[in-house]
Design a protein around this nucleic acid. Structure first.
Lengths: 98, 98
DNA sequence: AGATAAGTTCGATTGTTATCGAACATTAGA
DNA sequence: TCTAATGTTCGATAACAATCGAACTTATCT
């Protein structure tokens, strides 16, 4: 789990919006997350975040349940996720619409 | 000054190391910063950070003095820079050596 | 004026990424 | 066993980024 990979994973507006949604609503299926890209693209973003260690994916039937790895992130990079979410929700919390 | 641009600017190991050096040693000339890339590449990284709002560049004669925009960053994204520097210095503070 | 020093800009290369649609895999339900 | 739902993977494309060396600019020094 590298700092630069985590920052990179969080530096994309689509991914930031996914992370924010996971933070606010908790575990969610891939399809339950509303972003303005087709599913293959969404899948790509999820993979990026999973590989960076930002989200955890749990398989259940045909769906994948995503969750934010808050605890792991906090342990490794204290305060980082909180600061980013705070910044996102405070200043750019508008939807990534189209 | 956008969150994703700032995160992107800080997601590169070379740039992270520059930021960390500026944080520890204060204002520095471009040439005074020790990273393992040629000066044109360094110039590129500095531009990226300047455009993202992470550093300020002050011209003095033939040199450019770089400084971290701590105050502005703190105002806009409270706690963010601190968390990142903490994470960097704590866990990946080794030099970007070649 | 000429030389040196400090950066920037340019051109090229190489690699990476975001995006889409189409095809595929897997599981659940009728 | 079909069919539908949920994702993943693949191929293609277009844009972007990191890197280098060479040429350029600007300012200082002799």
């Amino acid at each position: 789990m590298h700092l630069s990979s985590v920052l990179y994973a969080l530096s994309d507006p689509v991914r930031l919006s996914i992370v924010s949604e996971l933070n606010k609503l908790g575990e969610r299926t891939c399809g339950g997350i509303d972003v303005s890209v087709v599913k293959s693209t969404k899948s790509h973003h999820v993979r990026t975040m999973r590989e960076a260690g930002v989200v955890h994916v749990r398989v259940q039937g045909t769906q994948r349940l995503l969750s934010l790895r808050k605890h792991d992130l906090e342990e490794r990079f204290p305060g980082l996720l909180h600061a980013i979410l705070q910044a996102y929700e405070g200043t750019e919390g508008q939807k990534v619409s189209e």
